[in-house]
Deep mutational scan, measured.
Amino acid sequence: MGMPNRKYADGEVVMGRWPGSVLYYEVQVTSYDDASHLYTVKYKDGTELALKESDIRLQS
């Protein structure tokens, strides 16, 4: 078993793309699913969504 190939840690605050949009919002990573390679993130309004790594970026 190798290390999970994840870029962002639980609790890390990053920018997540809103689905169907080009806009990124501040989100907190809450979990990562090794099987689906999706991150569960929480937006400031409390919305929780699963995002692909390509829809997440570090805060500038």
Rank of each mutant, 00 (worst) to 15 (best):
M15L: 13
L38C: 07
I56E: 01
V29F: 00
S36L: 11
L51N: 00
D10Y: 05
R57P: 02
K7L: 13
G11V: 01
Q59T: 14
M1D: 15
V29R: 00
Y39S: 00
K42S: 08
S60F: 13
V14C: 05
P19L: 04
V41T: 02
W18C: 09
S60M: 12
D10A: 05
L49R: 09
Q28W: 09
G2E: 14
A9F: 11
L58Y: 13
A9D: 08
G20S: 06
V27T: 03
D34F: 12
S36G: 06
S36E: 09
M3K: 14
P4H: 10
E53N: 04
Q59A: 14
S60E: 13
P19W: 05
Y25C: 10
L58A: 15
M3W: 12
S60K: 05
D55E: 11
T40Q: 08
R6S: 03
L49D: 03
V14F: 02
K52H: 12
Y25M: 10
K44G: 09
L38S: 07
N5P: 15
E53I: 04
A50H: 15
E48N: 07
V13Q: 08
Y43M: 15
P4Q: 09
M1G: 14
L49G: 08
Y32K: 00
M15E: 10
Y39G: 00
E12I: 06
D45M: 03
R57H: 10
D10G: 02
E53M: 03
G16W: 03
R57L: 11
V13H: 10
S36T: 14
V27Y: 05
M3L: 13
L49C: 08
Y32D: 00
S21E: 07
S21T: 15
Y8K: 00
G2M: 07
L49E: 04
T47N: 06
P19S: 03
G11A: 04
E53F: 06
I56H: 01
Q59I: 15
T47F: 08
S60Q: 12
K44D: 06
N5S: 11
D10S: 06
W18P: 11
L58D: 13
K44L: 10
V22I: 13
Y43N: 07
E12F: 04
Y39H: 01
V14W: 01
G2R: 01
V22R: 12
K44M: 12
L49A: 10
S21N: 06
A9L: 10
T47S: 09
V29T: 01
G20K: 05
S54P: 05
G46I: 03
S54T: 12
